[in-house]
Design a protein around this nucleic acid. Structure first.
Length: 426
RNA sequence: GCGAGCGUAGCCAAGUGGUUAAGGCAGAGGAUUGUGAUUCCUCCAUUCGUGGGUUCGAUCCCCAUCGUUCGCCCCA
């Protein structure tokens, strides 16, 4: 193809598949509204240093996946690879912490990572996420997880599993890191090549290596849970009890570590077995250290993000996006009738009826065929005779019944018309 | 960034080193100049992602490139 096509790793969401997207957004909006979360919209690009400092210079996301460029003023900018950093920047910049108490925020939008496209992974993708800032209470962790679960359930997904872990505070993690390195170093030569380099750069990441041999070696490795301080341990136990009390089942996974540097204590993922290699549909955790690190006041916080493309893929496995059908399909023929048809269609729309006007000027037979295919409940017919008498033929498409009615009377009783439509549509 | 598979119309597809590139769906027109089923007829790829090479000749073989799919890395 020499014609212009969408950039690699980007996708058009076409009208035929938009239904699931809109459904997810409206479900999330409704649930988050009920939980008193407020939407926040932050810019799609930010100073590069925000992500370098927030996400961590050593992470792959920052190291090799960012869309970074210099603008005409020679500032280094980056298309956001995730949502939390921007929200936190905004929180600090506008002093939202000074408004007292906790802030419950949510966002949705496009994110960008320069990666090789694959099932459930694109370069431009969409996330929906929440951030609960200003509380270190275990109930905050439980609330946020419960909301994620509720959203996923309400949009109709099943067979999801919640994986949960605590990675403690910075000092817990430091002690554990040393213990893990001490355990793995004797096996260094037997580890897969990636894990060998991670041994010095980011040893915790070895835990979720997919290499079978590495996993076998990890069988006897120390667990992070043994290195939690008493306070961290108490905190985690409390969260487990709260979740159990909410009826949310979870799997404890001491190998679960997250890719971004800012996480502390609670980390979790919600996975589907139905997505191939990209199984995680929602992931998040607590990030008590991030806000001070970005220049804000000491503020504990927790959040998560869902990958919307992945949700849509799962929904498509369940059922096709529901087709939209119209109430009235208006066919007309002849100059006067066409003009009246346009007016009639417009008044139906103003009254809230979904109305499609045939613009083809082709034979009535063709227009009826299109009416049929549009899935319309009823067809309105205007020809020379109707134009003359200011009437319209109203035809119910699934029964074929047809009757004439004065144009002026069609909307005389909109409630009744709506009722008829509901009855006659199958 | 690495590895493997694939690229024929809007969609799904068959196909072969030789020349008019099956079929189906969708679409357009007509049989039916005011009534949607069905049926029937006609039309809808000078071209097989793109560029180059081998060849008397390439959609088919080779190379490159782009895209895509799956996996690795990593992540939502």
């Amino acid at each position: 193809m020499t014609s212009i096509q969408a950039i690699r790793g980007t996708r058009d969401i076409l009208p035929s598949e938009i239904g699931n997207w809109q459904m997810i957004e409206s479900v999330a909006r409704q649930i988050l509204g009920c939980a008193a979360y407020q939407e926040i919209r932050t810019p799609i690009f930010e100073q590069t240093s925000l992500f370098e400092r927030g996400i961590g210079e050593a992470t792959d996301v920052v190291g090799k996946e960012m869309y970074t460029f210099n603008d005409r003023g020679d500032r280094s900018l980056t298309l956001r690879p995730e949502g939390t950093a921007g929200v936190v920047r905004s929180y600090i910049e506008h002093g939202l912490h000074a408004q007292g108490g906790v802030q419950r925020l949510w966002y949705t939008g496009a994110m960008f990572r320069y990666e090789r496209p694959q099932a459930g992974r694109q370069r431009q993708f969409h996330q929906l996420g929440v951030e609960l800032l200003g509380s270190s209470d275990g109930r905050a962790d439980a609330e946020v997880i419960a909301i994620a679960t509720q959203i996923l359930q309400t949009i109709g997904l099943k067979d999801l599993s919640l994986h949960l872990n605590s990675i403690g505070d910075a000092s817990d993690r430091q002690h554990y890191r040393e213990a893990l390195v001490a355990y793995l170093t004797p096996f260094k030569e037997q580890l897969d090549p990636d894990s060998q380099t991670r041994l010095t750069r980011n040893p915790l990441r070895i835990l979720d290596s997919k290499d079978a041999n590495t996993q076998a070696i990890l069988g006897n490795a120390p667990s992070i849970l043994e290195y939690l301080s008493p306070a961290s341990q108490t905190r985690f136990d409390a969260l487990l009890a709260l979740l159990a009390d909410l009826g949310i089942s979870s799997t404890l996974n001491s190998r679960l570590v997250r890719g971004l540097d800012y996480y502390t204590h609670t980390v979790f993922e919600i996975q589907s077995a139905d997505l191939g290699a990209q199984a995680t549909v929602c992931a998040g955790g607590r990030y008590d250290g991030l806000i001070p690190q970005l220049g804000g006041p000491e503020t504990p916080a927790i959040g998560w993000a869902m990958g919307l493309e992945r949700l849509v893929i799962l929904l498509q496995h369940l059922q096709a996006s529901p087709p939209s059908s119209v109430d009235f399909y208006v066919v007309s023929r002849g100059e006067a009738a066409e003009a009246q048809a346009l007016k009639l269609a417009q008044s139906l729309r103003q009254a809230g009826f979904k109305t499609e006007l045939d613009l083809s000027r082709s034979a009535f037979g063709k227009q009826f065929k299109r009416a049929d295919r549009s899935g319309a409940t009823a067809c309105l017919i205007l020809g020379d005779a109707e134009a003359e008498s200011k009437t319209v033929q109203l035809k119910w498409l699934n029964s074929g019944e047809q009757s004439a009615i004065a144009q002026a009377d069609l909307l005389a009783n909109p409630q009744q018309l709506r009722q008829q439509l509901t009855q006659r549509s199958t």
